[in-house]
Nucleic acid binder design. Sequence first.
DNA 1: AAAGCGTGGGC
DNA 2: TGCCCAAGCTT
Length: 296
Amino acid sequence: MNETLPAPDLAPVITAWFHENARDLPWRRDGFTAWGTLVSEFMLQQTPVARVIPRLEEWLTRWPTPAALAAVPASEAVRAWASLGYPRRALWLHAAAVQITERHGGEVPDDVDELLALTGIGDYTARAVAAFAYGHRHPVVDTNTRRVIARAVAGQGEPAPPSRTRDLEAMTALLPHDRREAAAFNAAIMELGAIVCTAKSPRCDVCPIRDACAWRAAGYPVYDGPKKAVQKKYEGSDRQVRGLIMAELRSTHRPVTNAEIETLWPNAAQRDRALAGLLSDGLAVASPTGGYLLPD
DNA sequence: AAAGCGTGGGC
DNA sequence: TGCCCAAGCTT
């Protein structure tokens, strides 16, 4: 491996700041389980903390172990997911619970490769579980971490598009060698990105590393790298139609009829695409008696 | 490997 | 108001 250039020693400062400023969040409580960490990480994939917390507490009360979730039909998971968004995650989390029960004796694995092999778990979630639930030393890189590194280290206003290799290398260069300190720093730099070094209006006036920040030192240059793709408008999109159909499926235990689906959206081609997509994703299944249901 | 995938809050 | 953003993942 190439020895990276001497990175500014950011970890101790950011971690000290974290100890003073960390939000009191459920997954930071003493005794929070590895399963709780896994569930929270699934829910936090693209859904804000404030919306996750109530659903998380419901889930863990109802399904305190992977085996408990694995024992119910996937439809229950999708229903309890409610309006967290991206309901495929509920399906994947249920599938992961089944896999954990079958392959790992009901214990959430602590090995990154075993975690990566579970449905719905990628580079971020696998390392987050290994680091936060088990205290292992791995670089954990999420969108917040990427942004802090882009600014403080690279001197750019925004991170380049995610690159597994580059991102893990950059974080590894900053990561303390001690396991406990590494785990704390992984959480700390994420938290800094989440509440200080934010995407829109960073609060540089209260930033603990402002004096070491390369972006600030460079005079806050405007980012001129590759732009991330702009998400298409939601209003009127196929995604909106999917969302409407899913809300209808969640609202009842009876099959939802074609007639009912027709009332949800005027455009037949869009309805057909949305429904076909849901069937293909396994979020809906055709009922033997007609209409559509959540999957078993 | 770029595109598709929900939902709601903030400015 | 409309746009941006939010602890990503899969195909």
